[in-house]
């Protein structure tokens, strides 16, 4: 038996919209800790890891660990039928082949339920080791999104370099080159607008802008984004989900051929 009641249903709507273009099908793993997901894109270049902790739900019942395979496009179709202020409850039975989404309007005058078919997904689960990163940049998520969008009109790849001067985003294309440097800016009264750079050593890595632009679909989930870089690891782009958990995107770098 599974019953998860999420008062801020819009969070789940936003999470699915943020990942559905990157990942088609995924297993949602439910345990006493919370609802989690790990899935790679079809080319095995990017990975999304989601955690919604049990404490973030108003009611959380998960009698035994369960993995539910869902098509994210179908899930999105159903969740789009929920209002932004609706309370969403996810219900499932052990061993069942369907899951039910129940939507309640804030004043309880409209209650809908949508039953979705589950699917068997044979997914590869990667072991992601805890790592020390060479540099961690925290910046406004809207700023990061703007930079990725702007640079993708000029080039296909971005070089992200962190030095003590700041974080530099560089691209190159047929029409020319672009450099955007963001310096550390600790705005004390507005922490969400701050850019904070923690650097153990300088690092410079190249990434496909197409994937970074896809990750920025999570921008509305969090005011700030954290970019963790190491020269020998995929970058981690993390959006915290208020009081509940996170959505993390991992992207393997490009190397000179």
């Amino acid at each position: 038996m599974l019953e998860l009641r999420l008062v801020q249903g819009s969070l789940l709507k936003k999470v699915i919209e943020a990942i559905k273009d990157l990942v088609t099908d995924a297993n949602f793993d439910c345990s006493a800790t919370g609802l989690s997901l790990q899935a790679m894109d079809s080319s095995h270049v990017a990975l999304v890891a989601l955690l919604l902790r049990s404490e973030g739900f108003e009611h959380y019942r998960c009698d035994r660990n369960i993995s539910m395979g869902m098509n994210l496009n179908n899930m999105s179709k159903m969740l789009k039928c929920a209002g932004n202020d609706d309370i969403i409850t996810i219900k499932g039975d052990d061993g069942g082949d369907t899951i039910t989404f129940m939507f309640e309007s804030p004043n309880q005058d409209k209650i809908s339920d949508f039953e979705m078919k589950l699917m068997d997904i044979d997914s590869e689960h990667l072991g992601i080791p805890e790592a020390e990163y060479h540099a961690i940049v925290k910046m406004p998520s809207s700023e990061f999104s703007r930079i990725c969008k702007d640079l993708s009109s000029i080039g296909d790849t971005v070089v992200i370099s962190v030095t003590k001067e700041g974080v530099k985003f560089t691209t190159r294309g047929d029409i020319g080159t672009a450099n955007i440097v963001c310096r550390q800016n600790k705005t004390i009264d507005k922490p969400d607008e701050a850019t904070i750079i923690e650097m153990n050593e300088p690092v410079s890595l190249t990434f496909a802008l197409r994937y970074l632009n896809s990750f920025t679909k999570a921008t509305s989930l969090s005011e700030s984004v954290t970019i963790s870089l190491s020269s020998d690891l995929p970058v981690v782009i993390e959006y915290k989900i208020a009081d509940m958990g996170y959505i993390r995107f991992y992207l393997a770098p490009k190397i000179e051929d």
Partner: peptide
């Protein structure tokens, strides 16, 4: 030119 690496080059299967 750049070559795209895969995640499996960094992370092992669980």
């Amino acid at each position: 030119m750049y070559k795209q690496q895969k995640l499996s080059a960094f992370f092992g299967c669980k």
